[in-house]
Design a protein around this nucleic acid. Sequence first.
DNA 1: CTGTGCTAC
DNA 2: GTAGCACAG
Length: 269
Amino acid sequence: MKKRTFYSLIAIALVVAVIGYEFVLKKQEHSEIIEQGSNPKSNTNEFFLPTSTTGQIIHHEGYSLSYSEPHEQAEWVAYELKKSHLSNANYDRPYFEIDQAVKTGAAHWRNYKNSGYDRGHLCPAGDRKYNQNAHDETFLTSNISPQDHGFNSGIWNTLEQKVRYWASKYDGVFVVTGGVLTNDLKTIGEEHVAVPNQFYKVLIDVNSGKIKMIGFLMPHQNSKEPLYKFVVPVDSIEKLTGIDFFPQLGDAIETKLEASADYKDWSFK
DNA sequence: CTGTGCTAC
DNA sequence: GTAGCACAG
């Protein structure tokens, strides 16, 4: 081989290496935050979306979520429950489907079969009954977490119904809900879907004059205690989950609202 | 309302 | 896979 040809090959190799390296870097940058779906403003009037600790946010028509691949479920599901969303429509339950918008692959419903746990909705089907599509969309497995049946049909169901009551009474609320995802959880199924030990729900009402907020943290077991016993400061849930629930709020008001476990503004009738 | 599971095609 | 029905909290 001629010396000149040799150096030409070296030069070409260098160019290829640099381009390749840049390509990989670019790809990594993009993979840091995967975001699927349309702008959340089409989903919610305001931008009340929490931060993601997992880097994978997905917007559906009726709710948004942040998917945690290691736990095979959402770390949060967020949506606005307007008064006008409340409906007595009675849709048939569809089959659960894998959420194709989850690029890392959402769990299959078979993980839950004979596991002893319910496929517990995070955004309840009962909150999305304003049309068939919104209802059926809640049956994506990205919106599901393993829940004990007694818990799901008991205290958790009671809380979900109370949220609907508040949505009606206060003309709409923003809801964020999920399981507390840690690293030492029991799992079910071949894909190892984590079973949370606690579930949370955070609400904010911006439609009733002064902004009010409330947080609930529940052990993953049924309870006959009244709902208000589970009220905690929202920042205690943020500490547990690493999620910032309302980064859009001004710091001053956010700090004040999130530090409080005061529920006097929320009617528990 | 929240769900599971069995049977049959 | 899907439809129907019984069942449980």
